[in-house]
């Protein structure tokens, strides 16, 4: 219990620094003594405190809730989006996952659709635009029917929830060898395809969202399933199959 808290990890960090979209960027090397009970971002906080102490600007990185749900944090750590632990966001990754003497490479999520704004911060607005293209049910606030008017099989509700757990962090894009946004898009298509509320707009939704995904400049799916391995919420690639099915069906049926 906290027994290893006085242990110290001497680490070498290679951190991507880039002052803006026009700067080519490069790695900057830092050394740090970290405690195993620090979170990865707390370790970066300490790096930043040290940098500022030396009169150098802090490394910019996205973060917010620091409890694994807002989807703001990112980073590719030693070649893996969100680092080495499965189903763990960067903010929930702790330094006990590393060993004394480790060299750690820290890079931004890389994709043409996610341009770097500064250092490790990227622009993920394409994901919002994919949702705008159909990731909703078109009902206005008002007086819909009673919530229990349509029973939904628990199994479907659970599957919809599995898909809806997506935090929109973009790790699937970062992990995909093709920088595809299939898992992100499929998660929302799936959630609504599994629920009766999604039925009326079924065809238009999947076509709209898939087309927007293309417009944003993401790659294509080669069914490697690396997105699923990187997903901090464990979203299944079964959702991609479901989206493919929906898309095929919609392409045949839509007028």
């Amino acid at each position: 219990m906290g027994g290893h808290s006085d242990e110290i990890l001497h680490l070498t960090l290679n951190i991507w620094r880039q002052s803006g979209a026009d700067d080519p960027g490069e790695f900057e090397t830092h050394t740090i003594d970290a405690s195993p009970s620090m979170s990865f971002l707390e370790m970066l906080d300490v790096v930043n405190e040290n940098l500022q102490e030396d009169g150098r600007e802090a490394v910019a990185f996205d973060h917010d809730c620091r409890e694994g749900i807002c989807g703001m944090c990112s980073l590719v750590i030693n070649g893996k989006p969100h680092g080495p632990e499965s189903e763990t966001t960067t903010c929930q990754l702790h330094m006990r996952s590393f060993s004394d003497g480790d060299v750690i490479w820290i890079e931004p999520f890389r994709a043409k659709a996610f341009p770097v704004l500064r250092d490790l911060i990227i622009d993920r607005s394409p994901l919002d635009r994919i949702i705008q293209a159909g990731g909703f049910v078109s009902i206005n606030t008002g007086a819909p029917q009673d919530a229990n008017a349509i029973p939904i099989a628990k199994e479907n509700a659970d599957l919809a929830m599995d898909a809806a757990a997506c935090i929109g962090c973009g790790a699937c894009v970062a992990a995909c060898p093709n920088a595809a946004a299939m898992l992100f898009t499929a998660a929302k298509v799936s959630q609504l395809a599994l629920l009766p509320q999604g039925e009326p707009e079924r065809e238009g939704r999947v076509i709209g969202m898939v087309e927007q995904m293309e417009t944003e400049g993401f790659g294509h799916c080669t069914n490697h399933y690396d997105c699923m391995a990187a997903c901090p919420k464990g979203i299944s690639t079964d959702n991609i199959a479901r989206m493919n099915r929906e898309y095929l069906r919609a392409s045949v049926l839509s007028r």
Binding site: P144, A147, I152
Partner: peptide
């Protein structure tokens, strides 16, 4: 009371019982 109706209509996947009700 209305909030729950509204959210279900939007496709919020609330937990359900085996009978399909919330």
């Amino acid at each position: 009371v209305d909030i729950i109706d509204q959210c279900v209509a939007q496709g919020v996947p609330f937990a359900r019982e085996y009978g399909g009700l919330l």
